[in-house]
Design a protein around this nucleic acid. Structure first.
Lengths: 344, 344
DNA sequence: GTAGATTGTGGAAACGTTTCCACTACAACG
DNA sequence: CGTTGTAGTGGAAACGTTTCCACAATCTAC
């Protein structure tokens, strides 16, 4: 037998199912000897009560909101968004629990998504930094499962709180140009559409290169440093950049972690930031405040809040528009300065 | 009627329950007109399928592991532990989902804990940075719910992966003394046993004061700066310290965030770290690596891993001892230096 | 000794779905 | 015109518990 039920336990212990239930629920109305017998039977059979079946007669409804993301290992921004989700949920509505689904690969994502939809184990779904295929989108709609994305990209085809990477890339570049920099390098993820990278890197890069071109500036190939999204990979990539002649005077990094990696690499090479090299990141993680990193603030915490806000409205039957994130902001701190340096 | 069921919908739409079920599950074997009628009835009644009841006949078992913590707003170490939990769970066993329970206050914690136990919605529970009363402990045991704590404290009365704050406090202090510092201030949480603070601060302080005393050093009252656990509160508290005469040459902060707050305050007062003032933190958050903070590493990520490891073993019926965390380590970075400064 | 309360126990009914079998109606085919 | 197949539908049974009522056994008080 795969899973013994309460009836198997009752039979084995020579008691009724009611008695087993009472033992399970710690009711005082059971003799010590009976309880002993039941517990023995439970142990022998390896019985585990079925969570689902327990709830049903109690007329309880599980109210779960699912959050599906990648493992929040590489992208620190995940954690920040999740924090926003948690904060807002605790402020607005205490009747929901958060269930976390972590996916490891694209096929795993699809499989998970289907199983979530199929089993209906959550009443709403927040999709963090993952895209939806047309088919997946259809499936969600068909099964009437409210959902919202919180993403590193923008999408008009399904409800999604996203940012404009192109615009962010432009803003960062324009800021560096306004400081007088002309030799600006780009450090980011490879442009391949790996599972978790989408084309965020490509979009930000495009904004960068559009602005550079508009100013008649050519970016040499070795000033475009692409590596997997990872602190050490970015550091290695920046070290390689500094090893070559024709050093940039500024770097636009596609994320704060990569910007910090560039700073570490620069210091290893004896370059001072910002004196010899300006560096701007992207995200505005909490860490960036403490490291005085100049960066593009994309309101990560806020994105989580807005997502919950929208989802709860949808869950209560309201039909509201997808909220918009505040525009991306430049947060100028101490890793950028004018070029050529002005003596103070 | 509180919640309409599938039978209500069937009646209203003038069809059988089987047909309603087919509509809900998107079966192709329903005529367009029938489907329409059912969907209308669903809309009118505001029917929502019961998640629980759907699973039961499908012979599915929900396999959830609960994680109960405070909102991970104030203590950054929560997030780090949770990351460890997630990482390990994804490596070891993919059949469990993580359910997050956030509590806001002590009564809320108790209420939540009881409801989790009562409803049996999780098969195992990880208790992060929260203590258990004797009664709560009994309840968990009585209901046979496997659990493990991951905590900022040590406890022998229930399974708990914790650290020795006293020892950590001693180590940090001894390190500062070994550098030649004699005037050392302590910055930490107030000693009151508020909901989330336990006596972590008091324990670390005790380690500190024991070592100081053993060296025949008296710590003046105004060198003991206690404030709520919060970046800004710690900064204010440090500013107050620097405003008075008899400056310390070193600070032992009870957490990395508070240490960073001290650094910020020091710089506001024109004190250079580490030239004028050495600062050591406690936690070794990721942020501390990037800010070059000297700190006590208490293996937060690892603590999450060990917790999952232990819990999974318990869930599979194994009866293993509670694992031990590696000992606390001193991570010397660049916010501490010898006193008096040696000219290089 | 008897009426009444209390304690321990068994098992039917209920919880709200899905699944499956049975049935109808009708089309296609010989 | 029968036979066979099939699409659409209805509803009983099953899923694994809890809850409640019924009943027996035992105690309690007069």
């Amino acid at each position: 037998m795969t899973h013994p039920t309460i009836r198997d336990v009752a039979q084995r212990a020579g008691v009724g199912i009611g008695t087993v239930s009472r033992v399970l629920n710690n009711s005082p109305r059971v003799t010590a000897s009976t309880r002993r017998a039941v517990l023995d039977a439970i142990a022998i059979l390896g019985y585990k009560p079925n969570t689902l079946a327990r709830q049903l007669p109690r007329k309880m409804r599980i109210r779960n909101i699912g959050v599906i993301t990648q493992l929040f290992v590489s992208y620190r921004s995940f954690a920040e968004r999740l924090r926003g989700v948690q904060l807002a949920l605790n402020e607005i509505d205490h009747s929901y629990e958060l269930v976390l689904f972590n996916v490891r690969s694209m096929p795993h994502y699809d499989e998970r998504l289907r199983s979530i939809i199929q089993t209906g184990q959550v009443e709403g779904l927040i999709i963090i930094d993952l895209d939806l295929t047309g088919e997946q989108h259809e499936l969600l709609l068909a099964h009437n499962l409210p959902f919202v994305g919180v993403n590193h990209f923008q999408n008009r085809e399904w409800p999604c709180i996203g940012t404009d990477n192109l615009h962010g890339g432009r803003m960062a570049t324009e800021y560096l140009l306004s400081l007088g920099h002309r030799k600006i390098a780009y450090v980011g993820d490879e442009f391949v559409d790996v599972f978790y990278a989408f084309n965020t890197s490509y979009e930000r890069y495009t904004g960068f290169s559009q602005v550079m071109e508009a100013h008649g500036l050519r970016v040499p190939d070795h000033h475009i440093c692409l590596a997997p999204h990872d602190y050490d990979a970015a550091r290695a990539s920046a070290l390689e950049l500094f090893r070559q002649p024709d050093l940039p005077t500024a770097i636009f990094a596609m994320s704060d972690m990569q910007a910090l990696a560039c700073i570490a690499a620069a210091e290893e090479c004896g370059l001072r930031v910002p004196d010899d090299l300006s560096i701007i990141g992207y995200d505005d993680l909490e860490i960036s405040y403490h490291t005085r990193l100049t960066t593009m603030r994309q309101h990560l915490l806020e994105s989580g809040r807005l997502a919950i806000d929208y989802l709860l409205k949808r869950l209560s039957g309201e039909n509201c528009p997808v909220p918009l994130l505040p525009p991306i902001e430049l947060i100028a701190r101490q890793t950028t300065r004018p070029y050529p340096p002005v003596k103070g």
